[in-house]
Design a binder for these strands. Structure first.
Ligand SMILES: [Zn+2]
Ligand SMILES: [Zn+2]
Ligand SMILES: [Zn+2]
Ligand SMILES: [Zn+2]
Lengths: 166, 166
DNA sequence: AATTGATATGTTATATTGTAACAAATTAAC
DNA sequence: GTTAATTTGTTACAATATAACATATCAATT
């Protein structure tokens, strides 16, 4: 049985990368903060694909570019990128993904595929509305929300379903 | 300014402890699994209060009872208790809490108070319904769901609000 | 009661993830 | 250019988690 580990062929990932880097560059100018080369390299490495990336994997990957890189190098860059909203932390994986929507502040619903490892970020406005109501009912003042679903994505389940037993 | 770190006085926590241990004992018998003394001790330690507990804190706390305890001792007990649904892992804290409803399988919405550290588990049926619909829209097959909200709980915000500036 | 298989625990070592603290370098503002 | 703020380098370590294998306990079967 073959296993899909890719996004649909309709997906042009260079668009994702370009959009993320362009927006990040622009937002940093607007905000008067510095997208230094280390920070940009980490952001690019995170955008290699739609997988969540671990900090120490980033460290290995950035070493050819930044031979002096240490854990703090990566964690500082990640802190910056999170503070700017360019990436999200995936709590249930201790890993990080690029944010797909830099234009609007938003809460994230993350769909984490156990098979292909892709993480999809969805707005899920209806869910968020219900959640806001529930938090009001509980008189709970939310500072941050993490909604993470693990399972099998559409692409992977289709690939499995169309698989013909030999 | 005083800071509340307690639950409302209406809360009788010994009820929580008794219910959790009684149900766990009963369910282990029904399921033919063993609630060994280590596992029961870990469960009791988790139920000390409604805070999320870290694995290495549990390790320190169990050592007077189990002098040979090592990390594996704790993590094995935690694995068992999670598999039985007696506790939940709080992904955003790398910590663990006792489950408040052992009778029915359920997804958890966790409200994590940054101030008093209490974690409240709510069923939030409306949110879960909306989430199920969203997952259907996405054709995503969910295996597990983690919804974790960090902020300030009702009790803490009331305590702050009623505080009179000197 | 001894044998056996399954489950649970003991033990050592190590892997993984994340921070603290301070020095040096770079950048921005004046 | 000098100063102040920010960023990076560097060392050391803290915190979280698992692998691997030995030993012990338990439960059922001879
Ligand atoms: Zn893409
Ligand atoms: Zn997938
Ligand atoms: Zn209680
Ligand atoms: Zn609170």
């Amino acid at each position: 049985m073959s296993i899909s580990t890719e996004l649909p062929s309709t997906h042009n990932h260079s668009n994702c990368i370009n959009a993320a880097l362009t927006m990040a560059t622009q937002l940093c100018v607007e905000r008067g903060v510095q997208l230094t080369s280390i920070r940009q390299q980490v952001l690019e490495l995170i955008w290699t694909n739609h997988h969540a990336v671990k900090a120490y994997d980033l460290l290995e990957r950035i070493k050819p570019l930044q031979s002096a890189a240490k854990p703090a190098t990566i964690y500082r860059a990640l802190d910056f990128l999170m503070a700017q909203g360019f990436i999200h932390r995936v709590e249930s994986l201790n890993a990080f993904i690029g944010c797909c929507d830099l234009k609007t502040a938003h809460e994230q619903l993350l769909l984490i595929c156990k098979q292909c490892k892709n993480v999809e970020e969805r707005h899920a406005d209806v869910v968020m509305q219900a959640l806001v109501q529930e938090l009001q009912n509980a008189n709970f003042i939310a500072h941050s929300k993490a909604i993470e679903i693990q399972g099998i994505c559409e692409n992977c389940s289709q690939t499995l379903n169309t698989e013909i037993p030999a």
